[in-house]
Design a protein around this nucleic acid. Sequence first.
DNA 1: AATGAATGAGGATTCATTCAT
DNA 2: TATGAATGAATCCTCATTCAT
Lengths: 231, 231, 231, 231
Amino acid sequence: MTKSQLEKMMGIKRRAISNDEKMERRNDILDAAAELLAGDDYHDISIARIARKAGLAKGTIFLYFKTKEELFLQLQSREYKSWFEDVNKRLHTLARQKKECGTDDFVENIMAAISSHPLMTRLTPILHIILERNVDYKTALEFKRFLLTEIQATGRLIERCLPFPQKNDGARLLLHLQVLLIGLIQLSRPSPSVKQVIEKEEMEVFQLNFDEKLSEMLVLLINGIKTDNKK
Amino acid sequence: MTKSQLEKMMGIKRRAISNDEKMERRNDILDAAAELLAGDDYHDISIARIARKAGLAKGTIFLYFKTKEELFLQLQSREYKSWFEDVNKRLHTLARQKKECGTDDFVENIMAAISSHPLMTRLTPILHIILERNVDYKTALEFKRFLLTEIQATGRLIERCLPFPQKNDGARLLLHLQVLLIGLIQLSRPSPSVKQVIEKEEMEVFQLNFDEKLSEMLVLLINGIKTDNKK
Amino acid sequence: MTKSQLEKMMGIKRRAISNDEKMERRNDILDAAAELLAGDDYHDISIARIARKAGLAKGTIFLYFKTKEELFLQLQSREYKSWFEDVNKRLHTLARQKKECGTDDFVENIMAAISSHPLMTRLTPILHIILERNVDYKTALEFKRFLLTEIQATGRLIERCLPFPQKNDGARLLLHLQVLLIGLIQLSRPSPSVKQVIEKEEMEVFQLNFDEKLSEMLVLLINGIKTDNKK
Amino acid sequence: MTKSQLEKMMGIKRRAISNDEKMERRNDILDAAAELLAGDDYHDISIARIARKAGLAKGTIFLYFKTKEELFLQLQSREYKSWFEDVNKRLHTLARQKKECGTDDFVENIMAAISSHPLMTRLTPILHIILERNVDYKTALEFKRFLLTEIQATGRLIERCLPFPQKNDGARLLLHLQVLLIGLIQLSRPSPSVKQVIEKEEMEVFQLNFDEKLSEMLVLLINGIKTDNKK
DNA sequence: AATGAATGAGGATTCATTCAT
DNA sequence: TATGAATGAATCCTCATTCAT
């Protein structure tokens, strides 16, 4: 239960005057959306539900986010930020341990970071297809700039960790990771009726375990990049 | 222009009595949907438009497809069938030329098959997230069975062509391809506002060319699989 | 209570298949709107209320009228048609009685026609300012064409009745009438708070009786036109 | 640019303490509304825009005007005041020149006064239908009292100018003028789609030139009143 | 088999107004 | 007096789907 929900229950109602308070409220809204997203699909979450959960009026939501899509894009942004921090921390730790880390170590850590950010898994498959569609230039610019910075910073850390001889191979790997994420999440989260189908024995091929498959493909790609560059 | 469109124009109206006639009408509908999909996004195509284009009444569409999603799933199915045929033909040709084909040859042919099936590019990113969501068990079963057969058959052809020592590496590669397709199509088709953003110089990283990137990643994966297996 | 309301109550539900049935349903909807308009202002009447009163679903309304404004424009159109018929009948009667009718006779009949069409009084003041605003070219064209025909026909009848020497003075008078209607209806239907104010003795000037004032001004205009033309 | 806009730009912010300062601020707000009204329709002007243009906060507007409608009613009031002053000045001038002015002279001067008060043209058609609707008793009373005074004063001037034998014929003419204004402004400002329609040749009847038509009808009414009274 | 009339759930968004600060 | 954060009512219209004919 969030702070504002408690406040709501206790009949307290405060105005977010200072910038800090506003950021707090903004985060309350994102928290409410995140909670709902854990249980429901994007399409089943209305602004009304988010407002109710956040203890605010519907209109108030639109003071903080211009559109529903922008709201979820900002949620994605927040989640990305946390994920990149997590990854960076892990890469630093790895770097401290040995000069050059093994592919397996690296992949394992990436996987762990993903596992501790389940929201990413919910948002990534709709990021390009939905969220980025109803968002204005300014918001899109800000989002992409943020992503760019993170990708470059983390990319460099990766390059320090993995023996990628070419410049930008770190950022390149992160893009590849994004591709894999989008595709694999979709394939590994079948709809109920499809799920029932692929649970049949002969359909084993389609029973795709997200973690396993992502690890596998990541390893392949990393090895591929190494091989590729050694040519 | 389809047969039923012509009929419509000529004021002829026929009932599809025999099974052949029904399949023909079914295909007319899929043709209409395909034509519309070439120009518009899935969400901008209403059943009403499809019906109009096919020269039929709205209700008639639902005699052939239980839901809008099923309609497009069947379109995807038809497109897949054609694509697999294309790929198989190409792999046979490759196999006839040399005993073992090079990775580049293989990738080039896959890319060519994809290029000549633009509908796949439109449907694949929504397949799991939309189409498979509103479809009943029977339809899902049929679709997945069909896919299974194709994947296995083509998978075996791939194994004959590429030096994959392990069983099912062919099917495995096809699944990987699906993952790449979903992710890459989304990344390479930005919304207008995002497009404007990533056209800036510093955003070059996000300017992702679908063909290039798919080839690149496919090569990496294939090399990866080879390396992986040689262990 | 309309036919469809009765049907609704009796659990009967019929589809409007033939054109006649469709026109009937269309009229049912207009009837419902008319009934509501008798008691409430345009802005207080939602499509939902009209649908409820007509015993139909909200969506059904939009099968018959593209927008709320178009619906009320068509209601205005129907009311105009009836009004013009009424006026024409009266002018014919007048013409049969004497060769040339007096201004008073004429005005009296116009007033009577207006009195028996209270809906006109409700719709005319919002016709140009609201109804014609959210209506497409085709609808606007049809409406204006209809009006043109009526105005010309009735205009000619007026010219036969009143000693207007110049051509088109009949149609001219009808336009003047429209101007007076719009202005006078507004002035004679004050809002509650204004009403309270102008009921004070010294505010007598503002207590404007619609019928009296319209007659008065019409007479002035007719006399004016006569004088004007005799110059 | 108003004073408070300048202040805003210069980062100055002052409280309106004295009554004069308050009136000044009130006028700044009306100025802002007037500026916006020159370009946009009433419905497209939000309180937020007025506040922004006036360099004030939204809430501040409501310190000076209880409702949006009252704000525009007060604007109308201010505009009326200026218009009546203008008319009075003109009538005095006319009276000085000759003992009795001709109808044409009179009408010409009225028209000139209207032309130099374009805001009146924007506000008059919504005065009764919108502005007076959401205004309390006190405001309505004050507004009507003001109008009464002006109408009576100017009415008397008119009677001195035009040969109207009956008492109050001046005020009567002013009321008539109001009627004509409301009706004619609406008829002469068609919506875009209607405009397109009536630009067709056969629709000439509907192409109503405001100035011409108002002059014409005013002349008719004045002549009518003269004739009427001479009876 | 074909039609197309009828359904009705579904949902974001605006904006005048209030009121805590 | 001034602010601007918060409110929440208010509502049109779309469109997949059903079903009477």
